[in-house]
Every structure is written in structure tokens, then in C-alpha cells.
Design a protein around this nucleic acid. Sequence first.
DNA 1: TTTTGAGTTGTTCGA
DNA 2: GTCGAACAACTCAAA
Length: 461
Amino acid sequence: MTALVWFTRDLRVHDHPALRAALDRHRRVVPVFCFEDRLLGGRHASGPRTQFLLECLGELSSALADRGGGLVIRRGRAEEALPELAAEVGAEEVHLTADVGPFARRRMDALARAGLEAVAHPGVAVVDDLGEVRTQAGGPYTVFSPFHRRWLEEPRRVVLGAPRTLPPLPSGVAKGRLPSLESLGLEQEVEEPPPGGEEAARERLSRFIRGDLREYSDNHDALGRDRTSRLSPYLHFGCLSAREVEERLPGGRGSEEFRRQVCWRDFHHHVLLHFPRNARSEFQQRYRGSISWSYAEKRFEAWCQGRTGFPLVDAGMRQLRRAGWMHNRARLVVGSFLTKDLGIDWRWGERWFMRLLVDGDEANNNGNWQWIASVGTDPAPAYRRIYNPARHMERYDPNGDYVRRYVPELSDVPDEHLAEPWNMPEEVQRGAGCVIGADYPEPIVDHAEARREALERYRVP
DNA sequence: TTTTGAGTTGTTCGA
DNA sequence: GTCGAACAACTCAAA
């Protein structure tokens, strides 16, 4: 008996329930990854993320080969390529890790229609059956805190080790080759991307647990220090299982806080599972079609390029361009700025993030964009989510380390003018080599005025 | 069914 | 500079 193991966003050998189940039940196991043009060229296409994916796959392939097996690479629609491969190797079922997005779920249905039995296993979230976490009334949760309380009580599965050995691939099966990024029609737009792969992921997790986790509660919001885990890309592609991450937390205040952040990931996945239409429209019905979003392209472009004239916003956006990643606190500030100060449709911001973020994840990205746009699951009123970039800089980047790292024009601006450089007297501007309007942009909006207009927009009957 | 407590991460204004 | 109040009433989830 032969089975396929279809890898999607679970690119690891440790703690992999689908792989383990296939090995337990079948003598021959054929691991496969399928490049889908729909994903590579669709609205979530991304050069940086695909490059990261290629690195993960290269390493996964070696890890499987080191254990006696291998990874088959195919190109095309899964519901065509997988039944084809199944026929080649005489497999009747395919094991995979269940996912929550609308696309992943449609794809799984298509596979069933194509006549290949698909067996889904847990492995993306911490909790096994996210859809079955229910309120007492039997419905899905839409507020984080009650979800979190319940989530802490949910049963957990046992963390699995990596298999020691794997059966060899059937002789004669075409293994296929990893494509190059260029051949996929994509380019690496990011200068300093994180390295992909399970090894890098496990190394980073260990380092985080030994180091910054202890002081995580106090430091995770400090932009200049940047003591976050940076595990998000690895969690997105499943180089690490979220369940194993949780299991390895040693306890204590930092662990509690970090675990709560991991719970947000499960929460966003839970919400998207139950409300797939969120992928395209507002979770809150009262805001669907009732807010007149701006589509001002020049302003959007200024935001994308980090040239808004607000140092913290620009630093965040340039970090995204440079690293394919942005500090969470900065994501909130740039998100608030785009949707509240510029009044631009949150979907534009969501799309730009998906293009550059190595950790770009439909559930998390959509959930967080809707949250900061005040159209999602956040119960707080919009006026509490209009962030002042200057106040945020004073609070979370008081020495300007973060801003100066990513906005070099401002390196010599004195601390007291860094949050609002447009208020610098002219001779100070010249002294700092930063003339506003020449070396660094004028602010593209007046925040106080933009705030008043935003409050108007959200005043929906 | 009704009631009750609570809701990630704020900002501004005026005393 | 510091502090408390206002922002605007609403909906979720559990008891």
C-alpha cells in the first residue's frame, strides 16, 4: 500500500502528524510538493516569500533524502498533478495538513472530486480542531479574550519527533526539480531576507528561548531593541509547528505573554475558517460598502515607498522593503496611518504586505488589517485605533534607534525633533543635513485634521 | 431570557 | 508637565 504525503505549508519533518500517519499506515510513502501557478501569480503572489519557500523546500528535500526518502516536485493544479502522481506510484490516498483559508479548502474539495481520497491531519495551529472551539451557545468566537481563555483549556496533542528513516521513493518516479525564482516569473525584491528552512527555524527558536523570551513582556514592543522572536515566517511555512513551539516554552511571564501572541495566530485562523468572506470584505457588516475609501494612488505610493514624512511610518515601510518583515508595533502604526490618516482601503495595504512579507499569511494578515482598520473583530471603537505616529515614536522608539536605522536621511536630526521633523527650525535642518521638502518629505497629511476626517468616515448609521 | 462584565497593543483636551 | 475625563455607546460571551 502506497500513500502520498502532500506538503503545503508544513515544510518540516519534526512534529508532522500527516507524515507520521502515512508512515504508520503505509509501506510506501511518497512526499510531494506541488507548485501552483494560481498561487504564484495570484493576488497573493510574492517574490520574497516564494524565495523563502524555495529555501524551505530545498532543505525539506535534503532532510527527507537523509532519512532514505525524498521529495517529489510537481507543477500544476494539485487536483490534476496529485491524481496523476498517485496513478504513477499506485497510491490511493493522500495525507495532508488541514488548512483554513478558502483557497486551501476549495482545493481539497477539488481533490476529492478528482477521485483521490484526501485525509486531513492537524498541524497548522496549536489546537487540533480549531473549527470546533465553540462558545457555549455553539457558535464561533469573534472576540479574542474569551477565545484565549477557552483556548488555554483546550486539549493538546502529543508533539511528534522526526522520523528516523523513510521508505525510498518508488524507482522510476520522476522526482522533478525545484524551479528557480526567475523561472516562476518572480523576483527577490528584498535585500536582507531571513534564511528559509527547518534548521534555521529550530535554531532561532532555541536562541529565542535561551535569550529574549525571558524579558519578552517588557521588550517586545520596543522598536529599537527588536527583541521579538522573528519566528513568523517559519510558522507560516510550517518549518516549525506552533504546537511544538508552545510545548518548548519554559513557563514564566515572558512565556505566558509569548504564548498569548501565538494564540492570536490560532484566533485569526479560527475566524477565517468560520468567516471565509473576510478574505475579501469587512467582518463588521455595518462597514461593508458604507465607508468611502480613498484610492489615491500617489499617496499610496508614498506610503509603500516610506516617503510619507512621518518618520516612524517611513521606517516601518522601509524595514518591510529591506527585510521582508516588519516589527509588529510598526505594522500597527503604518496600518493605522494608511487606513485612518490616508483613508485608503485596507485591502490595498493588505495586498502590499502580502507582496513583500516573508511571513505573509492570509489569516493573520487579513485579521490584523481588518483589526487596525476597525472593520474586523476588534471590539474597540475606531477612535481608539487612530494612532499618532509621533506619540508612538516617543513611546516605543524614544532614542530614535529604529527610525535612524531605516531612514538614514534622519540620522543627524536631534532627538527632540525626530518625531516631528517638520517642526525643526531651518538652521537646525541645514545643520542636520536634512532639509524638509528636499532631503526628507514634508508630511503628506496633517494628522490632527486627518483624525477628525477619519472619525467622520466611521460615523455610520 | 435577561443580565452582567468585559473588551490587545489610544489620543486629546483642559484643569 | 501631569492627571483624569471624554471619546460613544455597542456587542459578545457567559452566567
